[in-house]
Design a protein around this nucleic acid. Structure first.
Lengths: 215, 215, 215, 215
DNA sequence: TCGTAAGCGAGACGGTACGTCGAGTCTTGCT
DNA sequence: AGCAAGACTCGACGTACCGTCTCGCTTACGA
């Protein structure tokens, strides 16, 4: 029942914060940064991301919605990208499931997964960010830990399954995770479709048993 | 050995052109729109998309590169989105493969697939567009036929395999296609990874045989 | 009771028409220019000048109002300036008055003058054109005969007055005309005021008798 | 030897500035508007007005010449009209002259007047603005005080002359001013002519003594 | 306790791109 | 060859944000 992987990812993303290091090095007098403003900015960012999407998101809009000056944002994040990444990374992660069998673990985890996409900004924010990766290596590096954190629970499920002997030794666990997540990804990106929990069982069944006719 | 599905998709996308309908309704004559300019705009769009990506693409830049006035662009496309969709849809499709067996069909098609993503703007443009779908229903409708056209060859491969008896009758062919395409999609979107042809064989093998240990 | 001075001025202005000369020189086959269109363009120009003024006048608007293609306008006038000048010159002139005395001639003519300014586009178009003269020598040359035609009736009045012995021999008749027209011009340009016929009598009286106290 | 009337006129024209009122109402602080930029804009405006005239003046050109963003201009003036009016109003006024006699006062003042028209942008800017008055009530209201300020020195000259008994009691001083300024106005607007100082003496002589033959 | 250094909201700054409009030219098919 | 229609390139319009920069204020620490 692990949790909190998200926190690590967030911490990694936060390392892009403007210059906390140099700041500490010089001196530490002066008014401390307002934690209130910080949170208000992240909240406003998530709200606007969900409403208008990544490319229509403006720092000006975030500042206004958060009741904050633009400089207060730029003091913490160098541009809208790391801001969005941090806001995105702060979305709640989800706990591991251990129902005893590979099939049940996958199905339950996947259902929680879809629910998170449907009920939080994940479903709209993640595609927005993912779409920018190809043209923005910086962004790509930043969301990498966040994205990985969303895939790893599945790798752990397969690790446990291997220990139980449910799968062959030569199966690439990462590839297995991708196979199960794949139809979700295809639906989300290629088909622009709605992610229904009803998709889960057929996906898991087919991924586990394979497409070929069993002899 | 079918081909030309792309052309249909493009035609559908083109239906968003600014006002061909109203134009016909007024039954006006006037100077016809320049096919030369049209093509120059699409070419410039693809070139710039590949260079700077979707979000850094400016209509102003396209106009300049194409040697065309901005109005000439806006006369045809209401914004940069449908423009990019049409340019994107005009990318070459790929012909169906029939190598005789499900496994070979999938592997060969998938390799051609990856090659197209790696050598054309597809690999960068498609994620960009896909990421905007959630916030832009209009766009979503426009790229739908284009995206579907890129998935259908796989459905047809499975149809032939079913006729040959290689797969069970109750397998959902669409889901099977998603299973095979899935790891590509995950790599592209979740992991920002490079699409290497070396991925293909393991993916197909695992998708066909399934993750569970065969007894 | 002379009249028709305006016609001369118009003819002079028309000499700027795009290229009637070359046209005659080359050949005279083909469809002749539509006199109907010509008049429709001038009418539309005057109407729009009165409505929106010179600087807000667009050739596009004239073409639309006249039900004419833009090319038909540019075929006749090289730009909106000579077009406006010609339309302006075509406004009706006014006949000379000969009431027998300098004072009566001036007062009656001036009243007709003001009436023309108040009831036609003259009152708004003329200042617009005059204001552009300093920056547009071409325009300046074009409206020169038109403007002169509006001042000459006064010179003729003073010529008759001199013959009658009503004024001294050394009075510059042009300057005398300017002195009488002056307050009108000042009102129109410096004060943006309304031109009321009630202004006329005091103006003429003062101009004739002079400002200094008569001993 | 009064002076500074111009300053009042300018202040009145400035009252059209985009939003000083609303700004005060929100009692906001923020970075104050740059007086440097303000002056650079006015300077650039005057320079360009003199070079290309009013109708060829573009806000874009002013911004470029002044080294300023377009928004900085639009923040202060709602369009090029009030901008030009303010720049125009900022042109130097001229001091009253008191040479002891009506004739000398008029001649000296008028000469200074013509000199100002010939050596500053006044000679080209003022006609441009005046020509727009008829179609732009807003502009008309704005340049009204500026134009009046340029006429009032003459009214004051006549006031002093009346006190000295040089003119009759029933002479309308405003009309007298218009009579003296009139030929200048006619030359400027009706004739597009050059304003030469040689015009002054005959004008004043004729206006004072009147056109009619003295008995 | 008080100065000082940094953070704060506000908003102006020089820019760049937006999407629109009009200028003056060119290209259809028709008259 | 003229006509109405309307597309063409070009350039300015006035707006919106970008990321930076003052302003006049807090606010907390350390001398």
């Amino acid at each position: 029942m692990r949790a909190g992987k998200e926190a690590e990812a967030v911490a990694a993303a936060e390392s892009d914060r403007a210059k906390p290091t140099r700041r500490r090095m010089t001196s530490s007098t002066g008014r401390p940064r307002s934690e209130e403003a910080h949170q208000a900015i992240l909240d406003a960012t998530l709200a606007l991301l969900a409403e208008v999407g990544f490319s229509a998101l403006t720092v000006e809009g975030v500042a206004q919605r958060a009741g904050v000056g633009k400089a207060t944002i730029y003091r913490r994040w160098s541009s809208k990208l790391p801001l969005v990444v941090e806001a995105f990374g702060a979305l709640p992660g989800f706990e591991d499931v251990d129902a005893g069998s590979l099939e049940q673990d996958l199905k339950e985890t996947l259902k929680k997964y879809l629910e998170a996409f449907n009920t939080t900004a994940l479903g709209t924010v993640f595609p927005s960010l993912a779409g920018e990766r190809a043209h923005n290596p910086e962004l790509s590096k930043m969301i990498e830990p966040v994205a990985r954190a969303r895939r790893e629970p599945f790798v752990r499920i397969f690790e446990r399954a291997r220990q139980r002997g449910e799968i062959a030794d030569d199966v690439d666990l990462g590839l297995a995770a991708d196979l199960v997540l794949g139809p979700i990804s295809v639906t989300l990106f290629f088909r622009g479709g709605v992610l229904s929990p009803r998709m889960v069982d057929p996906i898991v069944d087919l991924a586990l048993s394979g497409i070929s006719k069993r002899n």
